[in-house]
């Protein structure tokens, strides 16, 4: 029972972490390796706003999300736009930005375990005799809301549909008047804000540490690769598989094997089905 409940919670953690990455890659073919750095960045920005500027939680959270989105926009407008289409360069550039961002925080003295974000609400409930704190329930709730919101956005809004279009066939979308730079900027902003949202939900469970930036990126990559990079349903499914796998590992082996299992999952995926669960073929098969 414990495994079931914590497995679900852990899966939603992974969904929160990975969804932003998958969204950006799925819609704009941009591998945002600064994803983990934006995660940490949002955490520290929120911390600074709350402790140095004395803002209450909600405005600080919203502002830090806006900052995360802004970082995404800046990364696209000033760097990715120029090298778009060269995947290797995109990876190197975004990873470099990520490392620079993370290490800047370390250099500024943001290290150790003294930086924490508050939980939204203190307290514990018992679900089938398993204690679950409110924050972990919030993770699940926010995860669900986020999935629903993204789904509704792409289904029912003009801009969301433009993202769906450009994700499936960039050129065909262009011919219909959709600006690929606009959608890519938007995707980066959204993806970064989602990474920030994950940070705001997950950091209260521990403390803000710079190393989380690297771990988050690896987890996000693992989920995306197992699920089929860029596939949304694949990401959710993979998050559940890996989420439960991690919890089982932690329960029966030891906490530090969590990363081993995650990386093993990447390797297994690459050997067995390199495109992941729902890796997509973008070409529309010609039918005559």
């Amino acid at each position: 029972m414990e495994i079931l409940i914590y497995g679900i919670v852990n899966s939603f953690k992974l969904i929160l972490i990975a969804f932003g990455f998958t969204l950006v890659y799925g819609t704009s073919r941009l591998p945002n390796f600064a994803h983990g750095a934006i995660f940490v960045f949002t955490g520290f920005v929120a911390w600074i706003m709350m402790h140095k500027l004395n803002l209450p939680f909600l405005p600080a959270a919203l502002l830090s999300l806006a900052c995360a989105a802004l970082v995404g926009v800046v990364i696209y407008q000033f760097i990715l736009k120029r090298i778009r289409g060269m995947n290797m360069n995109e990876i190197i550039a975004t990873y470099a930005i990520g490392v620079a961002l993370i290490e800047t925080f370390r250099w500024l003295g943001f290290k150790g375990t003294t930086f924490t974000l508050p939980v939204v609400k203190e307290g514990v409930v018992f679900i089938a005799d398993v204690p679950v704190d409110y924050q972990r329930l919030m993770v699940v709730a926010v995860g669900l809301v986020m999935l629903a919101a993204v789904w509704a956005f792409t289904k029912f809004t003009r801009t969301g549909r433009a993202l769906r279009g450009i994700a499936q066939d960039e050129r065909a979308a262009m011919m219909l008047g959709i600006d690929s730079d606009m959608t890519a900027t938007l995707a980066m902003a959204l993806g970064s804000a989602l990474s920030g949202l994950a940070a705001l939900m997950l950091f209260p469970l521990g403390s803000i540490v710079v190393e989380a930036g690297y771990n988050t990126l690896i987890f996000a990559l693992a989920v995306c690769m197992v699920g089929g990079i860029g596939s949304w349903s694949g990401t959710v499914l993979a998050a559940f598989v890996l989420g439960f796998l991690q919890v089982v590992t932690v329960t029966y082996l030891a906490t530090h094997f969590q990363m081993v299992v995650t990386l093993a999952a990447i390797i297994a995926t690459l050997i067995l089905k390199p495109s992941g669960f729902f890796g997509k073929h973008k070409e529309l098969e010609e039918r005559v």
């Binding site: 549909r161 066939d169 008047g177 529309l284």
Partner: peptide, 23 residues
């Protein structure tokens, strides 16, 4: 309207039309 159609394969016909109505 390009050669080989290039519809958005995963979208329904309705969604294809709606994406077309972007402008």
């Amino acid at each position: 309207c390009p050669e080989r159609r290039r519809l958005f394969p995963e979208s329904s016909v309705m969604e294809n039309l709606k994406i077309g109505a972007y402008m």
